[in-house]
Design a protein around this nucleic acid. Structure first.
Length: 271
DNA sequence: GAAGGCCTGGAA
DNA sequence: TTCCAGGCCTTC
């Protein structure tokens, strides 16, 4: 569930506490979660300093000295949280310890859709999923956005979920952006006027911006590192509002299946 | 470009 | 007991 706004919040929080820290040890409790072998991690991580922290799509990047980067993808239920003591926890996969502070940063993930890996400066060390990531919603120009979508014939909602086309949107923010833009999720962008794609471009940016400001959406497992919740779920217009009134026109929100995923929309406002 | 699979907990 | 949620990948 963590999508771009949630990941952005996580990165901002982690930045305050982890910049400049030096890894003492990394313990991998369940090897499946780490795409990089445990031994490599154990060899390359300790004694390295965290010199940068950033987000790319839904990925979190810890920039380490000597060109290594430690990546996390939280999948649906992944969390990077602080622990004073590691109590027994079947969903705990990675424990990171530092030289400067006693607290441990842990990676826990109930559904195990998340992953962790280490890359060096070489392009070849990047997994396919990262290498083929599309542009960031806040970096792509309006012109490029419109051109990209105008030549696509798939359902607009499915395309928005495709990380190779645009990085960072998941089901929540794809649905929310489409409602804000007044576009039916089943529409095919190559048959939309460019003015409507322009509207979508703006809507995506506005939706993400507001969500980031409000601390993301706390639906299932997402909470801030201090345990507090995001607020954007209170402002969802369609996601999770099946059967409820559209906040704009009071029509009942519909929910359909699109390419195996649920899509919620207002049949009146979104055409 | 659609459909199934991985994974788990919570709801029906 | 079965179904559903969805991150992303693989297969058709």
């Amino acid at each position: 569930m963590p999508e771009l706004p949630e990941v952005e919040n996580i990165v901002r929080e982690l930045k305050q506490k982890t910049m400049g820290l030096t890894f003492r040890r990394i313990s991998i409790l369940h090897e499946e979660i780490s795409k990089t072998p445990r031994q490599t991690m154990g060899k390359k991580i300790p004694q390295r300093k965290i010199i940068s922290l950033s987000r790319r799509g839904k990925y979190i990047r810890f920039g380490l000295n000597e060109e290594n980067t430690l990546w996390f993808h939280l999948g649906m239920t992944g969390q990077l949280v602080w622990r004073d003591e590691t109590v027994k926890d079947p969903h705990l996969h990675v424990v990171m310890e530092f030289l400067e502070i006693p607290q441990k940063l842990v990676f826990r993930d109930i559904r195990k859709f998340g992953e962790m890996f280490l890359t060096n400066g070489n392009l070849e060390s990047l997994p396919e999923g990262v290498r083929r990531l599309g542009p960031e919603p806040f970096e792509i120009s309006e012109k490029t956005f419109i051109e990209t979508f105008r030549q696509r014939s798939g359902r607009i909602k499915s395309l928005l979920l495709n990380q190779r086309i645009l990085a960072g949107l998941g089901n929540i923010y794809a649905d929310e952006s489409l409602h804000r833009a007044g576009i039916d999720p089943r529409r095919r962008p190559n048959r939309l006027k460019s003015g409507r794609l322009k509207q979508l471009y703006q809507s995506i940016r506005e939706t993400l911006e507001e969500a980031i400001k409000l601390g993301g959406s706390s639906i299932d497992d997402y909470i801030h590192s201090d345990g507090s919740r995001g607020f954007f779920q209170n402002f969802h217009r369609v996601y999770g509002r099946f059967g409820l009134e559209c906040v704009v026109c009071k029509t009942a929100i519909r929910k359909i299946k699109l390419a195996g995923r649920s899509a919620s929309f207002c049949p009146q406002c979104q055409t």
